[in-house]
């Protein structure tokens, strides 16, 4: 296993009497895309602000590369907050260079890198336009560039896809994956579960200021599977219920497969063998719960 890049250890944060983070632990391996999930108000933004050193935790510590974080370390972080914002009256190029230099980049380096990125997003001709002249989507791209321009080793994206149309969202996703491939570690805060399944390897689910679920996306899905199998028959025959082996589930919204749930203790092979004896099977596969379902289930029961 690769070494840990960010370790959050037993972090507690209180605001005016209410607990925003209650003994939170988080381990983000280097080069990983890590999902930070949770409903609004769960404490995601508080945690992100602590990692960014915008606010300080009441207790606990945050390590970067095994060492407690210092103020200088924020130069290695790129942060895209959920609420986007730029100086409207500033020119696109100047603004990106300014933000890059605040992160410690040299003037020349910042300017050259800014031009590369603008070219990559087809924004070259906008370099000397004011931000207020940009469309919302373009402004989002400019902000993305400002987030990644200083080649941070840790990227923190808070709801990165909100406000992007599908084409741009796809482009953004490809860029994020490319940055990961170049070695960046990515922390993704979202309540959009589809994007989690698409890109995240590991997640932490935060609810009511606590981590309620943590681990690899695949493993979590296995843990939460409910022995549901989608069975497809040849022709239009319907599957009858079987008290001993499985129960029938309501048909899914799409597809013509029938979903059956195995009774406890029933082996998949037994059920399939029985079905194979009685019906002409066209195919079957195990249905894993979506992150969305796990999310809702966990948040409800917690």
């Amino acid at each position: 296993m690769s070494n840990l890049f960010i370790e959050v250890k037993d972090v507690v944060k209180q605001y005016d009497g209410h607990v925003a983070l209650n003994h939170v632990d988080l381990n983000v391996p280097e080069g990983c895309i890590y999902g930070l999930l949770g409903p609004n108000g769960a404490g995601k933004t508080s945690l992100i602000r602590i990692i960014n050193m915008i606010t300080r935790q009441d207790s606990g510590e945050v390590l970067m590369n095994g060492r407690p974080m210092k103020l200088d370390d924020i130069a290695h972080i790129g942060y895209l907050p959920e609420e986007r914002g730029l100086y409207k009256k500033m020119k696109v190029g100047e603004q990106i260079v300014y933000l890059a230099r605040l992160k410690g980049m040299g003037k020349l380096d910042a300017r050259n890198t800014m031009r590369e990125w603008l070219a990559r997003f087809d924004l070259t001709e906008w370099e000397n336009k004011k931000v207020e002249a940009l469309s919302k989507g373009m402004a989002q791209k400019v902000q993305f560039i400002a987030t990644v321009i200083h080649r941070p080793r840790l990227l923190i994206f808070d709801e990165p896809f909100s406000g992007f149309d599908p084409v741009n969202a796809e482009q953004l996703k490809m860029e994020i994956l490319r940055l990961r491939d170049e070695g960046a570690t990515i922390l993704f805060s979202t309540h959009n579960m589809e994007s989690v399944e698409a890109v995240c390897e590991q997640i932490s689910l935060i609810n009511h200021s606590q981590v309620v679920l943590q681990g690899y996306v695949d493993a979590i899905k296995q843990q939460h599977k409910q022995n549901i199998i989608a069975v497809e028959l040849q022709g239009n025959k319907a599957i009858a219920a079987n008290e001993a082996l499985y129960s029938l589930l309501p048909p899914p919204a799409v597809g013509k497969a029938t979903h059956i749930q195995l009774k406890t203790g029933v082996d998949v092979r037994d059920a399939i063998a029985w079905l194979n004896d009685h019906y002409a099977l066209a195919g079957f596969h195990e249905v894993l719960p979506s992150m969305h379902e796990i999310f809702i289930e966990t948040v409800k029961t917690a």
Binding site: N52, L71, P81, G85, Y87, L99
Partner: peptide, 16 residues
Amino acid sequence: EEKTNRIVEVIVSSCK
């Protein structure tokens, strides 16, 4: 302006 723009969050992630 910085506050309503929300740019302040980006800035303070770069400086005090």
